[in-house]
Design a protein around this nucleic acid. Structure first.
Length: 437
RNA sequence: CGGAGCGUGGCGCAGUCUGGUAGCGCACUUCGCUGGGGGUGAAGGGGUCGUAGGUUCGAAUCCUAUCGCUCCGACCA
């Protein structure tokens, strides 16, 4: 993509409303624009990152045996009356009335809807277990949205739901998600720590929140420092084996959010206690028959008698992750994208647009990378170099290739790694090989 | 939902106290110089001062209402 074609409205000054790094950089880098409080448009650069995150989640969910579907944003009030949550949920639920005076709502979550789908389609224990998920926009009418996409009213969430015939099987489904979550966040270069959590309005008795440690986290968290170095299960993890030992290991040491604090543990752990702030990026629940019972979701068991389904639900804040990743990875100049979610892998800076040797070298580099399907953004604008360097650092692409007349006299370009800051003078081909290798 | 603020050109702000018909920086447009970290000179374009009503000869400025947004707290993926 040529920058003269790409829609990238960057901002030099800090918007005054943005208090934290991720919000500031997302606005400045032209990733998002606010529409109204807590509601944002995703501009091309931000949208590319969002899609990358979605895809990683998709791959890890599918690998763990889940299946993706898509449920609507607007739901009928009836199913929420059935579960009993219509009156409980309060003002955070955006309620709507259609032209036939039918009560509708913009879904804040989908337990009722998925239960409705499964109960009407699955009749036999032989069809279970199943784990279904979607990545859909949700709406919660937050009293006070803040921190940009980290706490918006409208947000993209991956929510999955497991259905099993008994508790043992349900816990196995829960464990699969536990592992899949560790893998998902690790692929985004995030250190997400599973912590005991409150189950809140969703209910249930087994639940973990996954928190990314960051100074700007919304909640105070505590954990044993050794958890930070636990090894994340690899891509070859076999989900058909017993996963309990891995889950047991990850839950063996103390880790809790402020709502589940156990002060006696703190004195016990002593110097190994880590006290930090965390951003919640995932939350998993096992809640048994809370919804299946209320909504009559049953299947026929081997003996012909009805079995009430055992359920769990599993959320990941997809849009929030964009902010969380930036909080975890930035410097004073801007964002530093991990490779896996970067909107482009490489940025080419033409230091002297109009200079024949520069233009030719840039075009050649750009074409070569495109031919190899490397995602590349070519800054071909006729701007001063300072502007180009500043914008490139701001948008945080992992690699920068800087091409100017001075280096070209020696047949060299400069390859800069955004994360390490290391710069090397190389031939165009060596630079390409470094990036591809 | 409690508390505190702010709405003036695309962005950041001054002007409001003490009424006299709008200004600064950045950005933008054109041209020139410059050319390895937000360079520079000249010439331009763009605002019924959030909205509505009121007071006044006259309102960005005073009064009333209303809408929007932000920050702190309580709440939450």
């Amino acid at each position: 993509m040529r920058l003269t074609d790409f829609f990238l409205p960057t901002i030099k000054e800090n918007p005054k409303e943005a208090q934290i790094a991720s919000h500031r950089f997302m606005l400045r880098a032209g990733m998002i624009r606010q529409s109204s409080a807590g509601i944002y448009s995703w501009l091309p650069l931000g949208f590319r990152v969002l899609k990358k995150i979605e895809q990683i989640i998709r791959e890890e969910m599918d690998r763990a045996g889940c299946q993706e579907l898509l449920m609507p944003t607007i739901q009928p009030a009836e199913i929420w009356r059935e579960s009993g949550r219509y009156d409980v949920y309060g003002k955070e639920m955006l309620r709507l009335i259609d032209r036939h005076d039918r009560e509708m709502l913009y879904g804040p979550t989908n337990e009722e809807m998925i239960t409705e789908i499964v109960r009407s389609s699955i009749r036999s224990y032989k069809d279970l277990p199943k784990n279904l998920y979607h990545q859909q926009w949700k709406f919660r009418d937050e009293v006070r949205p803040r921190f940009g996409v980290m706490r918006g009213k409208e947000f993209l969430m991956k929510d999955g739901y497991s259905f099993d015939v008994n508790k043992e099987s349900a816990i196995n489904s829960y464990n699969k998600m536990f592992i899949a979550y560790l893998r998902t966040f690790a692929r985004m270069d995030l250190k997400a720590i599973p912590m005991q959590a409150d189950t809140g309005p969703i209910g249930g008795d087994l639940s973990h929140e996954f928190l990314v440690l960051a100074e700007t986290g919304e909640s105070e968290v505590f954990c044993h420092k050794d958890i930070l170095n636990f090894e994340v299960p690899g891509p070859d993890t076999d989900y058909s084996t017993d996963l309990q030992p891995i889950v047991d290991k990850w839950t063996s040491l103390y880790a809790a959010t402020d709502e589940k604090v156990d002060v006696s543990k703190h004195t016990e752990i002593g110097a190994s206690l880590v006290s930090a702030r965390g951003i919640e990026v995932g939350h998993i629940f096992y809640f048994g028959d809370k919804y299946s019972k209320a909504m009559g979701a049953t299947v026929a068991g081997p003996d012909g008698n009805d079995i009430t389904l055992e359920m769990g639900s599993y959320g990941i804040g997809v849009s929030r992750l964009v902010g969380a990743i930036i909080e975890a990875s930035h410097d004073d100049n801007g964002i530093i994208w991990p490779d896996a979610v970067a909107p482009f892998k490489v940025g080419i800076i033409n230091l002297r647009v109009g200079d024949k040797s520069c233009d030719i070298a840039c075009e050649e580099t750009y074409t070569k990378m495109r031919d190899q399907y490397v995602e590349v953004l070519y800054d071909d604008r006729n701007e001063s170099v300072g502007v180009k360097f500043a914008d490139m650092d701001l948008i945080g692409l992992p690699w920068q290739i800087v091409i100017g007349p001075r280096g070209l006299k020696e047949g060299k370009v400069e390859l800069k790694n955004r994360s390490s800051g290391v710069k090397e003078e190389l031939s165009i081909n060596d630079a390409l090989n470094n990036i591809l290798g």
